[in-house]
C-alpha cells in the first residue's frame, strides 16, 4: 500500500468514448480519449463545464459505462466488466469525493465513515474502530456524533474524505472537492489530499476548473469538448504540508499499514 510505483500505469484509457442522447441530438461527452495514469500519481482534470471531465471521472469510478473504448483499472476493463465486478471496483478500488459532499444527512459523521465498510460486510466493532481512527486523523474526533448539517462545509468534506478512505482504496476520485468551500477550507482539503497522495501513495484524480487546485497536481490534463487538448507536468506542485496536517497524515499512514 505504501510503495509508490510511479512507473506502472494503474489506469489506462484507450480510445474512450461516451455519447449521450439529448433529445434528438447525440452529444459526445468523452470523444476518444487515450490516457495513462501511473499508480501514486496526482492528476488534475481541467476544463470548462461540459468539457467531459466529470463524465471521465464517473467512467473511472464505474458509475457510468463507456459507449466504446476501454477503461483499464489495474487488470480490469471496466468497459466490459460485469455488474458484480463494478460493485467490487466501487467497494474496494476507488473512493469518491463529491463537490456537494453527499454525506448521508440522517447519519452521524461516524456512521457516514462506517457506511462503505458496512456495505462490504465488515463487522460492527471493526468498522467502528476504524471509523474513529479515520475521523481522529482528519481532526474531527470530537465531531463524530454530529449530523452533517451540524458540521461546517470544510468539516463535511473532511468527513467525506475519511469515508472515501474507509475501505483502503487505491484511487481517490474527487469531483470539484473545493467547489463548495471557501478558499481557506478549500486549501485545507487540498493539503489533506496532497498529503494522502504523497505519504500513502494514493492515486489521486481531481476534477477542477480552479487553477489553484490544479497547482497541487503532478500533471494537469486539459479537456475541451470531450478531447484532451493539453497535458502539462507541474514542475513544482504546491505542497503546503504545513502543520498540523503532516503529523496527522503520518498517523494516517501508520494506521493504514
Amino acid at each position: 500500500m505504501n510503495e509508490t510505483n510511479i512507473d506502472k500505469p494503474i489506469i489506462r484509457l484507450i480510445n474512450l468514448t461516451r455519447r449521450y442522447k439529448v433529445g434528438p441530438n447525440v452529444v459526445e461527452a468523452v470523444a476518444g480519449i487515450d490516457l495513462e495514469i501511473a499508480a501514486g500519481e496526482f492528476v488534475a482534470l481541467m476544463g470548462a463545464s461540459g468539457s467531459g471531465k466529470s463524465t471521465l471521472l464517473n467512467l473511472l469510478g464505474g458509475l457510468d459505462t463507456p459507449s466504446s473504448g476501454e477503461v483499464w483499472v489495474g487488470e480490469v476493463n471496466l468497459a466490459t466488466a460485469k455488474r458484480n465486478i463494478l460493485d467490487q471496483h466501487r467497494q474496494h478500488t476507488v473512493g469518491f469525493v463529491f463537490q456537494s459532499f453527499n454525506l448521508l444527512s440522517t447519519r452521524t459523521a461516524l456512521e457516514n465513515v462506517e457506511m462503505p465498510m458496512l456495505l462490504v460486510g465488515e463487522r460492527a466493532a471493526a468498522r467502528r474502530t476504524r471509523a474513529h481512527e479515520l475521523l481522529a486523523q482528519i481532526g474531527l474526533a470530537q465531531r463524530s456524533d454530529h449530523l452533517p448539517n451540524a458540521l461546517s462545509g470544510g468539516e463535511q468534506q473532511r468527513v467525506a474524505i475519511a469515508r472515501a478512505l474507509a475501505n483502503n482504496p487505491l484511487i481517490l476520485l474527487a469531483d470539484e472537492p473545493t467547489g463548495n468551500l471557501d478558499s481557506k477550507n478549500g486549501a485545507e482539503v487540498m493539503r489533506i489530499l496532497r498529503s494522502l497522495n504523497q505519504e500513502r501513495g494514493l492515486t489521486l484524480i481531481v476534477v477542477t476548473h480552479d487553477p489553484a487546485v490544479a497547482a497541487y497536481a503532478d500533471r494537469v490534463v486539459r479537456l475541451l469538448d470531450g478531447k484532451i487538448v493539453e497535458i502539462s507536468m507541474n514542475a513544482a506542485p504546491t505542497i503546503e504540508a504545513v502543520p498540523p496536517i503532516t503529523p496527522v497524515m503520518s498517523q494516517l499512514q501508520e494506521a493504514s499499514v
Partner: peptide, 16 residues
Amino acid sequence: TREIGVLKALGATRRD
C-alpha cells in the same frame, strides 16, 4: 433517490 445514488457510489449492490 440521492441517498441511493451515494450508497451505490460507495459500493452498494443492487441486492443491498
